[in-house]
Design a protein around this nucleic acid. Sequence first.
RNA 1: GCCACCGUAGCUCAGUGGUAGAGCACUCCCUUGGUAAGGGAGAGGUCAUGGGUUCAAGUCCCAUUGGUGGCUCCA
Length: 732
Amino acid sequence: MPVITLPNGDKKVFEKPVTAAEVAASIGAGLAKAAIGAKVDGELRDLSTVLDRDCLLAIVTAPKPGQAASADALYLMRHSAAHVMAEAIQDVLGKDVLLAYGPPTDTGFFYDMYVPEGKKLSTDHFDAINTRMAEIIAENRTFTRYEQDAEASLTRLQREGNKYKIDNAERALGRASSVYKSSKPVADASMIRNPDTTGLSFYATGEPGKNWEDLCRGPHVPSTGRIGAARVMSLASSYWHGDENSDRLTRVYGTAFASQADLDAYLNQLEQAKARDHRVIGKNLRLFHIDETVGQGLILWTPKGAIVRKELQAFIAAELKKQGYTEVFTPHIGSLELYKTSGHFPYYKDAQYPPIIERETLEALAACSCAEVMRRVEGVSARLAAGINERTKAQTITPDRVLPDEQLVKGFMLKPMNCPHHAKIFDSAPHSYRDMPVRLAEFGTVYRWEQSGELNGLTRVRGFTQDDAHLFCTEDQIPAEIQGCLTLVKVIFATLGMKDYRVRVGLRDPDSSKYTGSAESWDKAEAACLEAAASLGVAFSKEPGEAAFYGPKIDFVVKDVIGREWQLGTVQVDYQMGNRFDLSYIGPDGGKHRPVVIHRAPFGSMERFCGVLIEHFAGAFPTWLSPEQVRVLPISEKTNEYAQRVAGLLREAGVRVGVDAGPDRIQAKVKVAAEEKIPYLLVVGPRDAEAGTVSVRVRGVEKDLGAMPLSAFVEGVVGEIAIRRADLTVRP
RNA sequence: GCCACCGUAGCUCAGUGGUAGAGCACUCCCUUGGUAAGGGAGAGGUCAUGGGUUCAAGUCCCAUUGGUGGCUCCA
């Protein structure tokens, strides 16, 4: 006698077990018709799920026309559409395409599959796949769930010869995989585990034994017709279980929506996003250039982009000054020994440009074997090893890396981080506890050997300038310093009108012993990070196990126009660097103490941050950031002279101004300037020349706003720039 | 780095084995005008690079290089 509690608190009592569909029908015909799934005690289930005990039940419905679909409804449709797409692909390419794993995602779904040798899935197949998917949806076949016990299931999968599904099944059953030795955990075992029985569930799209079937945990919509609209989107590749040593699979992305209109709107939105892409805008507005002859991932800042970057940097620098930072400059390279001391080399050598070795040394090494060269480059002196091992109280440098001095290869590295240089600056003078914290800031350019496939416009590059600083402080000062970093973030994001970011607080994994520093220190630092993050007023997540081994951290993450997340900045507490570099300050007791170091680059790099800003503003920067803030447009060449006078006055006032003195008509000049997203256009003709006025047109306002005295305009625009206003406010 | 796709004028792109094209931008000429393109002419190419197949290659094949989307990675 199940008692079903509905979301509004109503209770319904049934004499015998009922399906969720029957409950929906008992509530109303309209609900029954709209129902596509059920949420039982918070878990998404098929509508056909039998309810045989007391539970909370919410019916998941397809949205009415014009209404937004619920996340649950989209999940059901997309999970179901993944089956439909898989069937369509097998119809088009053949049954020997082996299905592996096909979950819903935020914007659709994908299905990983193995395409046998000799066959190829390409975008040329998309029309056929889409057509077939539409047919399957039109056939409105029922999603039929049935269960088999473990042995029968495995026997069946063996017969079908799909090792991926066997692997899935074994993992779902909690057994070690007999097919794969991958050390990585299954991506999401719950996708296929049947929570109710010890067996496994299968779904037939139609009749079991007759129509297409797949091992699947579910749930699904009742029938294919309840998927509003679906289509295949793109091809990519993936590894089985995300393990690059495992099989390479073809990942087919698709998406589904409750209606064709929703799908069209989504596709349209993707189109729009493309126009906001910083790579597109950067090219159109001539902000930056990447040249293959210069090198992958190396940004050439063209004059206009250089202005944006410079203004942004000046803004950040001004805020740092207010917070008591002191600026330093350090070179782009440092000796190998420096990075051996910090530990970056050779531990992160794969992520760095290879060492720069002097010509004579290189010639001497020419006779050595490759392995010998590596050994001599990566080796350290006995003195250095002893020092580090003593200070870190561990065998940080193993004996096999210690070589006699004459065998060590000396050389330099392009710096992958600024901290070793800054540590050396700190160490170059004695420090009293009275001087702490020491805040060393530098827009420091670093170089990292990112994998070529990861490079992306301004957001992932190989040479970039961090808004870096290192705060050398006492343990007691950590909370205030972290708070200061976050205040800076708040001020700058607020000025730029950026609200769409999230914060991750990386905490230590309590089970792990890999961390350095005492438990009490960690507790305090973690508490300080959490408190500071909470004070920002945006969403933040605690991420246990995500701390660096040397301390907890706060990361700032933003999304680009196509939904990819990029980490901007980070604030990291570091208990280790003081040891590696033997840093100290004199305490009140007259003795030496280790400073704690806070690494902070809240905006990450100027490159990535500018990329994000370009997308944030869609290239329409506020006046203070705009490469060209005002453009004067003479009506005809007869007023060119007046236009030049206007421009001269603005330039004298510190405004970046241009003049379009060409032979075009005013309509053409306005159009061109609008496309270049210039904040203010001043149209000047004989009337203005006579009266000493300018006719103002403001970006985003599609008409002439009338004339105003030139002096008033200058005053207005200069004021707007001075306070870094986010919007355009000067009006006649 | 791996997989797939792509690379034609400064930009956006057409060109399915037979004489390299369009629009915009650029230069010049006409037009001297009041708010999203007035008109005309001209110039601009080693079709990413290198090799191969072919009587003939932008087009087909191989390699390299760069880009895009994913995967993996990201101190």
